[in-house]
């Protein structure tokens, strides 16, 4: 479980760095959250966020940290799966396998 804590801490650090960088450059902007316009494609897709996080400025960095946070519970299920394999509890290897692959599929496919 130490791994999960470290992972969360790194995600938080990345988000913090991105936020400070954004505020340094755009701190005097007026935000627009009252009306919904949706995020640009570069901040919606998992693959673009991971591959080009350094090309979309501070917002791309924040989104990478948020993606790591979303991945944290999935990692938790994968770690449970590993421990079930160690226990040779095949019933729960299958159950946690279904949960983990559904989560991964939902995260990766919808944001393709």
């Amino acid at each position: 479980m130490k791994l999960l804590r470290t992972f969360t801490a790194i995600a938080a650090l990345i988000v913090l760095i991105g936020t400070l960088a954004f505020l340094y450059h755009h701190g005097d902007m007026i935000p627009h959250y009252k009306t919904f316009s949706g995020e640009p494609a570069s901040l919606r897709s998992c693959t673009i966020i991971i591959e080009q996080f350094n090309q979309h400025g501070s917002l791309g960095v924040i989104q990478l940290g948020l993606l790591m946070l979303i991945f944290n519970p999935i990692l938790r299920v994968i770690l449970s799966l590993v421990s079930f394999v160690h226990e040779r509890n095949w019933k729960y290897v299958i159950i946690s396998g279904i949960v983990a692959s559904t989560l991964l599929y939902s995260l990766l496919s919808s944001a393709g």
């Binding site: 988000v15 913090l16 991105g18 936020t19 954004f22 935000p31 959250y33 949706g38 995020e39 640009p40 901040l43 919606r44 897709s45 998992c46 917002l59 924040i62 989104q63 940290g65 948020l66 993606l67 979303i70 991945f71 944290n72 519970p73 999935i74 938790r76 299920v77 949960v99 559904t102 989560l103 939902s106 995260l107 990766l108 496919s109 919808s110 944001a111 393709g112």
Partner: peptide, 24 residues
Amino acid sequence: GITAAASAGIYLSRGYIDPILAAP
């Protein structure tokens, strides 16, 4: 967290997750 992660990808792809709101 597991439950929320299941739908987070869908909301991310719809553009509902705004980095400037979500970060703080």
